[in-house]
Nucleic acid binder design. Structure first.
Length: 652
DNA sequence: TTAGGGTTAG
């Protein structure tokens, strides 16, 4: 790297006469640079800028900077702007280095001022960048379009729409940038990021001319706001669509948990002959992860290879693949991808640790974490610790987990988030240490959320502690008034403690509040014979083969000797009807279908809600009688049923 | 010398 700099700078070292000309000019000993030498100096500037562009570390830049000073070119706005930009790109704070380099330039131009503004903005120092802007104006310089674009971006990052509006006004008044696409696109983006999508849309509608960027950023904004219909409408109206626009739609559907439509869009994109890049691929991979279908997972890997991507080279694609394989129940494949990665970063490690944790492989997760800490320079972040703590929780490793929880703050300076507390409550609760869980909640520096109280309620239910369950449920009823699951958990806790009159009271309360299980919301997916995905909804016998599925389920129930856990049914109906409702749970329908079509190997079901106790018991039994492993992914974790036993040790 | 789409979470 050093030799590269020397090679590029070598011609400058030889041109001493030029250098003395430049020095004299900058020291006001020369009124102007002779035209014959001007071209040559411009060439030297270009060479230095190119050298800077090749720098890959702050020390290389500092070295090059030393050359620049020795050759008296540190007065060149062009060179110094590049230098500040590169420092910023390499995460050197502008305040610590860029600003002092800037201050040595006696006549900075608008480019250099803008570079400094952008440097401060990268560091999140909006105030300082405004000060630089003001001194730029004070020196009589006219800002450039991207000066305003940068300042608008800065206002967006502080969610300061008023400032943004002011800056835009100034750009119109001062520079006549009223129709400049850079400025107007930044304005749209600013409004959107400040949460004023309607204002962004208004600007868009009033634009005399729009480019791909105007369209795409608005489409993305609609997608992120959950308004896919509006996004779709805009996309259709777009006069020409490129890869980024298509990808925005694909990832938009993924962000809104609509993986099927994401894949449909991707198919349309390919039919339209649009190229695919890593970003598109990450979207498609995430869609497959959401579907949880192993077949799709293999399809996407083949496609990636066909498109010429080597997952081993791309951190984004690699991490997404690890996550997808874990979520599709293919842990071995996830680990293969992980091992094949040439460069592993905190994402790849975290994805893999979380993958192990999800599958109950606590020891593997912790070993991987320790490997990361001892053999690499990768620094863990809060998500890495979430994975590690989840692993401890699922693996019942309480003492180890407590140690990690303390260390993450003391040793690594990562303060625990509400999610970390959530995991700790789960970990303690699982071991029946309910009082300790309660005191931990009391020490939380932030308000406990529904997850924390839910973990406590779930644990109280399992351990039959009705009074703690009551307290937790009290908080949950306020935080999540429409969530019927909390009422059910409380009922179960009462039932376990034999407090039947309380069970009746809560059920009555539920009826009075008109709480009903949203039947259509529960959905399970399973792959058919050819890898096609079948969806089943609770209580809906609409699948073309549901008659046969019903028969299979009845047969299985008999073989297993299944006794329905009717306690979980909150409808006020007779026992027989309760049994029928339980038999119509989506994961059972999916299971029945998979058994009906037959096949070998692990049977994989993906559910969008937490698996209920009756289904859990049923799956245990069925795994025993059919002699196949059943893998159910619910919204919390994996349940791996084998020979009548589940990997979650019946705690979830 | 500038801009739009992306990876981890019970």
């Amino acid at each position: 790297m050093v030799s590269l700099s020397k090679k590029l700078i070598a011609p400058i070292l030889k041109s001493s006469s030029l250098i003395s000309t430049v020095a004299k000019f900058h020291n006001d000993q020369l009124p102007f640079i002779p035209f014959s030498q001007l071209q040559k100096i411009k060439q030297l500037e270009c060479q230095l800028v190119s050298t800077l562009e090749h720098c890959r570390s702050p020390s290389q830049i500092k070295q090059t900077h030393a050359y620049i000073i020795r050759k008296c070119l540190h007065q060149s706005s062009y060179i110094i702007a590049k230098l500040i930009r590169m420092l910023s790109k390499l995460n050197v704070s502008t305040k610590s280095y860029g600003a002092s380099v800037f201050s040595e330039v006696r006549h900075p131009n608008a480019f250099l001022y803008t570079a400094l503004i952008r440097g401060y903005l990268v560091d999140g120092m909006l105030k300082e960048s405004i000060l630089v802007y003001n001194s730029m104006r004070g020196n009589g310089l006219i800002p450039l379009s991207f000066t305003f674009a940068a300042l608008l971006k800065g206002s967006a990052s502080e969610s300061n729409a008023n400032l943004g509006r002011q800056i835009h006004g100034e750009s119109v008044k001062l520079g006549g940038f009223g129709a400049d696409l850079f400025v107007v696109n930044a304005l749209i983006d600013m409004y959107v990021k400040c949460g004023h999508l309607d204002c962004g849309r208004k600007v868009f509608d009033e634009m005399p001319e729009r480019d791909l960027i105007s369209w795409t950023s608005l489409i993305d904004a609609y997608a992120k706001a959950g308004e896919m219909d509006c996004a779709d409408e805009l996309f259709s109206a777009m006069p020409s669509k490129d890869m980024v626009a298509w990808t925005t739609m694909v990832t938009g559907f993924v962000q809104n948990a609509r993986p099927r439509e994401a894949l449909e869009f991707f198919e349309r994109m390919q039919t339209a002959g649009v190229q695919t890049d890593e970003v598109t691929l990450v979207g498609v991979i995430n869609a497959c992860a959401q579907l949880g279908s192993a077949k799709y997972a293999y399809w996407v890997r083949d496609m990636a290879v066909r498109c010429g991507f080597n997952p081993a080279n791309g951190a984004h694609v690699g991490s997404a693949l690890i996550d997808m394989y874990s979520k599709c129940g293919c842990l071995e494949e996830a680990y293969d991808v992980f091992n094949s990665l040439q460069r592993k970063n905190v994402y790849s490690y975290s994805c893999m640790i979380i993958g192990f944790a999800m599958h109950g492989r606590a020891t593997s997760a912790i070993e991987l974490f320790q490997e990361m800490m001892t053999t690499t320079s990768v620094k863990p972040n809060s998500v890495t610790f979430l994975g590690v703590l989840t692993a401890c929780s699922h693996g019942g490793m309480l003492e180890q987990g407590k140690l990690f929880f303390d260390e993450m703050k003391e040793k690594y300076g990562i303060s625990p988030s509400v999610d970390h507390y959530n995991t700790m409550v789960d970990m303690l609760g699982r071991r029946g240490r309910l009082k300790e869980a309660v005191s931990l909640i009391e020490t939380m520096p932030m308000e406990p959320n529904g997850g924390v109280w839910g973990a406590l309620l779930g644990a109280s239910r399992v351990h039959g502690d009705a009074s703690i369950a009551e307290a937790a449920a009290g908080h949950l009823f306020k935080l999540e008034p429409g969530n019927i699951g909390n009422y059910i958990l409380l009922c179960e806790a009462y039932a376990k403690a034999g407090r039947w009159e309380d069970v009746t009271r809560v059920r009555k309360e539920m009826r009075e509040k008109g709480l009903r299980k949203k039947a259509a919301a529960a959905c399970s997916r399973v792959e058919g014979e050819r890898g096609e995905v079948h969806e089943f909804y609770a209580g809906e016998w609409t699948h073309p083969r549901s008659g046969e599925v019903e028969g299979v389920l009845e047969e299985l129930a008999e073989k297993v000797g299944h006794e329905a856990r009717v306690g979980g049914v909150v409808y006020d109906v007779d026992e027989e009807e309760k049994r029928r409702i339980l038999m119509g749970h989506s994961e059972k329908l999916a299971l029945g279908y998979a058994v009906l079509v037959g096949g070998e190997g692990t049977l994989r079901i993906v559910k969008n809600l937490r698996i209920c106790e009756d289904c859990h018991v049923f799956m245990c039994g069925v795994s025993r009688v059919i002699g196949r492993d059943i893998l159910v992914r619910d919204n919390f974790r994996f349940h791996h049923f084998r020979h009548g036993i589940c990997s979650c040790s019946d705690f979830w």
